[in-house]
Structures are given as structure tokens and as C-alpha cells.
Nucleic acid binder design. Sequence first.
DNA 1: GCCTTGTATTAGCATTCCCTTATATAAGCT
DNA 2: AGCTTATATAAGGGAATGCTAATACAAGGC
Lengths: 122, 122
Amino acid sequence: MITRKSTKRKSIKPSSADIDATDIFALIGRAENIEQAAVAMQAMSHPARIKILCMLSSGEQMVQDLTDAIGTSQSNISQHLGILKACGMIASRKQATRTYYSIEDPRILKMITLTRDIFCGV
Amino acid sequence: MITRKSTKRKSIKPSSADIDATDIFALIGRAENIEQAAVAMQAMSHPARIKILCMLSSGEQMVQDLTDAIGTSQSNISQHLGILKACGMIASRKQATRTYYSIEDPRILKMITLTRDIFCGV
DNA sequence: GCCTTGTATTAGCATTCCCTTATATAAGCT
DNA sequence: AGCTTATATAAGGGAATGCTAATACAAGGC
């Protein structure tokens, strides 16, 4: 199925050990990692969710504060939080009626930090 | 509308000059930048498009090679390329029947490099 | 001129996303 | 117990996304 001129390797799906950073074709063989990245980016790729992650990147926040700062309905924020939590990006801690959210996955912290750096220069 | 305890600033939408990196609320006021970031991430957040960008990150590639390496239909790849191009991430150059694509926006190069780093460790 | 190759475009359909509205739950307060 | 506050969940519909299949287009080779 794969037909390319420079056949440096025969298979399109090399094992992990087979990766060579200079081979442009090696990378896309890491289907599982790419899939993960796509899911993560998809989850992050909404203005409200980016804002949430930005706020969480400086520490735990409660729903009310997120809602006030971002400026949409409480229900909507709760749903966005649900999406982020469903893919393991954030964690929640309940204290009485309040729920505090925080970033759980360190990779996401890295991602949001860079995104902020690149697009906001902050 | 905004009701938070530590009222370091009164408005939720400070001017650019007003940004302070330590203020968690300042950032989300940069609505335009956040919007841009969301659009960019949304465009990147598909396995095929991540693969395309990974391949392009090591230089110009033609459609045929992308199609072969990624393993979906030519039509499908062409549509994904269209999406990436529509938001200015990539550029195309036509040479006879071939079309060569390359990354145009340096921010995207940065993003894809980091994404690769984080999720693939490469 | 015709056939092949490389790429783009269109249409259609199934799926997913996102918002709004309404309601549920649970804890604190009086 | 009732009221209020904080959060979650469910239902609904409209929009966006993503795939396939079919077709268009443009350049080269014979």
C-alpha cells in the first residue's frame, strides 16, 4: 500500500525502538501517540476550555469563579469542565457545595503554557 | 458581572499593556488571542492533520507522498490540506501536476514540534 | 487527440459538537 | 422544614465535522 521512492525502511509502522528523529516517516507510525495528541488538542480547542485551562494553570479554581471570569452560563462551564475531566486533563475536589478543579495531566500544563506563550506572548 | 474577591483590576478586559503574567484573570481577557489559539488547535486536532503537519515540519511534501504515508484516500488528504491551508497554517506551490505543501505559520511549527515532543517524546 | 497521472471539488450522509433551557442534587442558612 | 447557593445532568435542536464516492480539471506522454 505504501509506495514511496526513498525506501529507508520497509514498513510504515516501525516499532518504538525503530524511531529515528530524522526520518519524517517514522513519526506518523506512532499512531497511538498521534491519536492521543489529537484527542487532547480536540478537547483543548475551544475558547472556553482554553480559558479554563489558562486559569487552572495558575492553580485550583472553583466553578463559580471560572463561570464569572469566562462569562457564559454555569451549566455551560460545567459541561466544558466535564469534557476536560473526561479525558483526564483536570481533576476535581469537592468541599461542601463548592467544587475545585485543577490540572491533573502535566502534559496538558505544558501544552497550555506553550499555547499561551505562542498566541498570547505571555 | 465579575465578582471576585481579590479585585486587583476592575475590568475583565484589560488592554494589552495592562497584562500582568501573575494575574490569572488577565490572560483570559485576551479574547482575540484565545480565539486564534482555539481555531489553530481545532484545525490541528485530527490525527491525519497532525500527521500531515509532522511530515511538513521536516520540509515540503507533495500530496501523493502524504497520501501514501498517512494511508487514507487522496480526496480525504486533499480536504485536510484544504482545512490547514484555509487557516493559513500551510502554503502550497504547484509544479506541473504536483502540488507541494509546506508549513507557513512559524507558530504552527512551534506548536507541532512541542506536541510531538510531549506526546511522542521525539 | 486520447489516456494516464496528480490533485481539487462536490454532494450526501452520519456523527459529533455546542448552546440553551429546564431540572436534579446537595449543602448551608434561618 | 423551607430557602438559597453551588454544581451537575438531561433533553433538544442547530451547526459543524469527517468520511466516501463521484466527478472535474490540468498537465504529460504517446
